[in-house]
């Protein structure tokens, strides 16, 4: 068997037409398709936002349509810095591998993995705070001790105007009956935010600091029409927020898996074919920079606008 006949051309050396070796050209094509994937989701975001009835974006009762009414800008800015740094460490890894400094290359690869884990941890805290914040909708104003505690918002629908009575807040305790069914929730409602002005504080947790503004309410399942956390089902905005950042997070996880694989097996590959290993890190890097690039757009679009 002659090895030459079965060897795939341009596996290592660049093709004269594209000036890329196969793997690099392939990863660029893959990224082109990724652009279309995120493009379709961005487009859906714009469509949903343009079509959202007034007063429901990002969530019912928000004073403005900006995402940071309910999202945490400082954490996301921190994540932006983390991800950009991880892009740079990825580059350094490739740079030192090309310089023939294997252990330094691996060190920076490890840094990239650690930074991406940091990104995921921050993301976890962000998600967690959303999932523990609740929106409750009522058919009629909620009156406790003769005082109306719910707010209302009116917006147009297909059947004419629709008024939603709602509350945002946290469940502090769930009381169940002996059969295990929920009897009532103890619910700490957020203080009403002013409908004007700009609340740039951490939107996710503003409820805590003002929890005293309302007494704890006992909410029975029969009291409300709908209760949902600020998770995907909370509003169209939280839905697209979770979808976009979730999909992006999956891309991060995928990248981490690949990098950990290279951390574990890189040594033996490096001994046999050092250039090929450097090429693989370059391809991983291209993917990683793309994931970074997507976040660079996700951050302003979801959090700041």
């Amino acid at each position: 068997m002659s090895a030459a006949a079965t060897e795939i051309p341009y596996d290592m050396e660049p093709h004269p037409l594209t000036r890329m070796y196969n793997g690099k050209f392939g990863i660029w094509l893959f990224l082109a398709s990724e652009i279309m994937l995120f493009g379709a989701l961005f487009s859906s975001y714009v469509l949903l936002r343009v079509g959202a009835p007034e007063g429901t974006w990002p969530i019912i009762g928000a004073p403005t349509v900006l995402g940071h009414e309910i999202l945490n800008v400082p954490l996301a800015a921190l994540n932006t810095v983390i991800l950009i740094s991880s892009s740079v460490t990825m580059l350094m890894s490739w740079y030192y591998l090309k310089e023939n400094k294997f252990s330094r290359g691996q060190f920076f690869l490890l840094m990239t993995v650690l930074l991406s884990c940091g990104f995921l941890v921050v993301k976890y805290f962000e998600y967690n705070s959303k999932l523990h914040h609740y929106l409750v909708e009522f058919d009629a104003p909620l009156v406790v001790d003769g005082e109306q505690v719910s707010y209302s918002r009116t917006y147009p629908t297909a059947e004419g105007e629709r008024t939603v009575h709602y509350l945002h807040g946290h469940i502090t305790e769930t009381v169940k009956d002996e059969d295990g069914y929920v009897e009532y929730y103890k619910f700490a409602a957020d203080a009403r935010k002013p409908d004007h002005g700009h609340a740039h504080d951490d939107g996710a947790d503003h409820g805590d600091s003002h929890a005293g503004a309302h007494p704890e309410i006992e909410l029975r399942p029969s009291d409300y029409r709908r209760m949902s956390n600020w998770g995907p089902a909370g509003s169209t905005f939280t839905g697209i927020y979770f979808t976009l950042t979730g999909l992006h997070g999956l891309h991060i996880v995928g990248g981490v898996v690949v990098m950990v694989y290279f951390l574990l097996t890189g040594g033996s590959m490096w001994k046999k074919l050092p250039d090929k290993y450097a090429n693989r890190i370059e391809c991983t890097g291209l993917y990683w920079h793309f994931v970074d690039l997507v976040w660079i757009f996700l951050f302003p679009v979801l959090y700041l606008l």
């Binding site: 859906s44 949903l48 998770g231 995907p232 089902a233 169209t236 839905g239 697209i240 979770f242 979808t243």
Partner: peptide
């Protein structure tokens, strides 16, 4: 997401 996570896209 609409079917599993309760969104309404």
């Amino acid at each position: 997401m609409d079917r599993v996570a309760g969104t309404s896209f």
